[in-house]
Design a protein around this nucleic acid. Structure first.
Length: 561
RNA sequence: CGGGACGUAGCGCAGUUUGGUAGCGCACCUGAUUUGGGAUCAGGAGGCCGCAGGUUCAAAUCCUGUCGUCCCGACCA
């Protein structure tokens, strides 16, 4: 067996799942964000894949396999060749023709279905694959959590109408719930942004873990949970009853930040407005949020419907006539977006559009106007948008996401069908992804102790490990091989640790690689006709009889489940 | 991409300040003694000190460049 375990942790691993996968000999790094799965890792990965496969098949989806290498034409047709950015891993063939390594497969599948499906009688249709994806991440991180090459299950649904899409969306939502339950994960579906993939509705499945890259807000009373990127609040902003004061221009030297300004003017930061400038599809816009709040870029981008979106450069600010650090809302010629809170507050402070000066007692409508919206990040402690509960914050690993795509790709790729009246209609698409390797890593994040991995039985690379205390004992060796054969014949996945190592080494490795049930064969108990067992998760230990070993192991495994 | 750090044996590290021809622990090989939670002793093998230039009698060490890796941020369907 090729399972090179490590006593020490490689220096470049930061989070527990990455450390344990390296130490247990599951993975090795080949390049940043690119990993080899060794036999133990590959087995565990396939356990997850097979659970996913079973639930997809059960849901009526059919498995197929798309190529990794995709021609640029497909991506040009959908428009994403130019939009996707540097993350799209572009390659050229020997003739100089453009291709990419698939980061996702909407184009390929929509193109396939466009060519093959012509009638409403062929719908609905759900197709999926489990395959490598490529995204040239700026910063790969945390082992399998964010790689540049990773295994993903992606499923796509095609329906005649929104009602059909809705049905399949819920079928997939339920399948995902079963999948992550079967993998033994503590997870939560949350409302999510649709991002650049487009579409109308989306949920992410988040495995709760401190190492998670995503922040979610969830209600302490009801089921509401959302990615902070799109989270809303029920906290109502009453228009302040304060009477409007006369506007004043004040010299504020060396006040570069909101805190500087607030301190200098002896104002609360809630009485200030901050201006953040973005370039959206080549137009500079200013977004104002209350000084103490954080801007939510995704909400702004979605509001604008912008394809390209980034914080404006200094040159762009200058050519738009904006004075960095002193941008104000009064007499502003550049397009302004106003977060609700800057329209409900009274007598606020903002920049004076003049270097070194701020305005105080600025008021919405009287002094400035603009497009109003919800542009800030909601924070923990605010009210739930659905009930009177309070939002709490948690971190999560996004292991899956379900999207309603609508007709975006069917239209661009030409996936139309003829309805009963012979009328051409674009198909309603949904797409449903699961990061298989990430799910595995997330499972380790949630299932480990100081000795190593503690696999949930369903995704353990092996269910049982048999350890002989001494390979010099012929009776132990014989008993071990006999039990191994019997368990294998029953269909169990078993390791027989017959290395000529001391018992301590074998026990440590068994714990490290996290096998749920350990059977120890030693002379003392063997003489009494007994084998010892130990359950990895809770450490429960005891003996079973040699004669009834297999049936007693059956019972133990049933209990571990 | 901005900021920070690091590349010396399979892994973890020291050595770089002050240039003198590479070391420790674990792992690996041989032997002996051991053998129920990562044994002990003895003997060994293993290094283009990331790479390329430069300075110097002499470079792991100084200089320049370059590649790679990690962390924070930004970014991310």
């Amino acid at each position: 067996m090729f399972a090179p375990t490590l006593r020490e942790v490689p220096a470049d691993a930061e989070i527990i799942s990455h450390k344990l996968m390296l130490r247990s000999g599951m993975i090795r790094k080949v390049a940043s964000g690119i990993y080899t799965y060794l036999p133990l890792g590959w087995r565990a990965l396939n356990k997850v894949s097979n659970i996913v496969r079973e639930e997809m098949d059960e849901s009526g989806a059919q498995e197929l396999m798309f190529p990794i290498v995709q021609p640029a034409e497909l991506w040009q047709k959908s428009g994403r060749w130019d939009v996707y950015g540097d993350e799209l891993w572009r390659v050229k063939d020997r003739h100089g023709r453009d291709f990419c390594l698939g980061p996702t497969h909407e184009e390929v599948i929509a193109s396939l279905v466009a060519g093959e499906v012509k009638s409403h009688k062929q719908l609905p249709l759900m197709l999926y694959q489990i395959q490598n994806k490529y995204r040239d991440e700026r910063r790969p991180r945390f082992g399998l959590m964010r790689g540049r090459e990773f295994v993903m299950k992606d499923c796509y649904s095609f329906d005649r109408d929104e009602q059909g899409l809705d049905v399949n969306y819920h079928i997939m939502y339920d399948a995902y719930t079963r999948i992550f339950n079967r993998c033994g994960l503590d997870f939560r579906p949350v409302e999510a942004d649709n991002g650049a993939i487009g579409g109308t509705s989306s949920h992410e499945f988040m495995v709760l873990a401190d190492s998670g890259e995503a922040e979610i807000l969830h209600c302490n009373k009801c089921e509401y949970a959302a990615n902070v990127e799109i989270a809303n609040t029920g906290s109502v902003q009453q228009v302040s009853e304060e009477s409007e004061q006369e506007i004043e221009k004040i010299l504020t030297p060396d006040c570069r930040t909101i805190d500087d300004v607030a301190a200098f003017l002896k104002l609360d930061t809630t009485k200030t407005m901050k201006a953040l400038c973005y370039t959206a599809d080549d137009e500079v816009v200013i977004v104002f949020v209350r000084g103490d709040r954080r801007l939510n870029e995704i909400k702004v981008q979605n509001h604008l419907g912008a394809t390209t979106f980034y914080m404006s450069t200094e040159e762009e600010l200058q050519s738009a006539g904006l004075v960095q650090g002193y941008i104000g809302a009064v007499d502003q010629k550049v397009k302004m977006l106003l977060d609700t809170e800057v329209t409900t507050g009274k007598n606020l402070c903002c920049g004076a559009n003049d270097h070194g000066y701020h305005l105080i007692n600025v008021n919405y409508k009287r002094d400035f106007d603009g497009e109003i919206g919800n542009f800030r990040l909601v924070e923990a402690g605010e009210k739930c948008p659905h009930c009177d509960g309070t939002l709490e914050s948690a971190r999560g690993v996004e292991v899956g996401q379900v999207f309603k795509l609508g007709t975006k790709y069917s239209v661009s790729m030409g996936a139309y069908y003829l309805d009963e009246e012979g009328k051409s209609q674009p198909m309603e698409m949904g797409c449903y992804g699961i990061g298989v390797g990430r799910t595995l890593a997330a499972a380790i994040e949630q299932n480990n102790d100081e000795n190593g991995i503690v696999w949930p039985l369903a995704i353990a690379p092996y269910q049982i490990i048999i350890v002989t205390v001494s390979e010099k004992s012929e009776t132990q060796v014989a008993a071990g091989e006999k039990l191994y054969g019997e368990l294998m014949a029953k269909g169990y996945e078993v390791i027989l640790d017959d290395r000529h190592e001391r018992a301590g080494v074998k026990f440590k490795d068994a714990d490290l690689i996290g096998i749920p049930l350990r059977i120890t064969i030693g002379d003392k108990s063997l003489a009494k006709g007994e084998l010892e067992y130990k359950i990895r998760r809770d450490g429960e230990a005891g003996v079973i009889s040699v004669d009834n070993a297999v049936s007693e192991i059956d019972a133990l495994l049933a209990k571990i489940k």
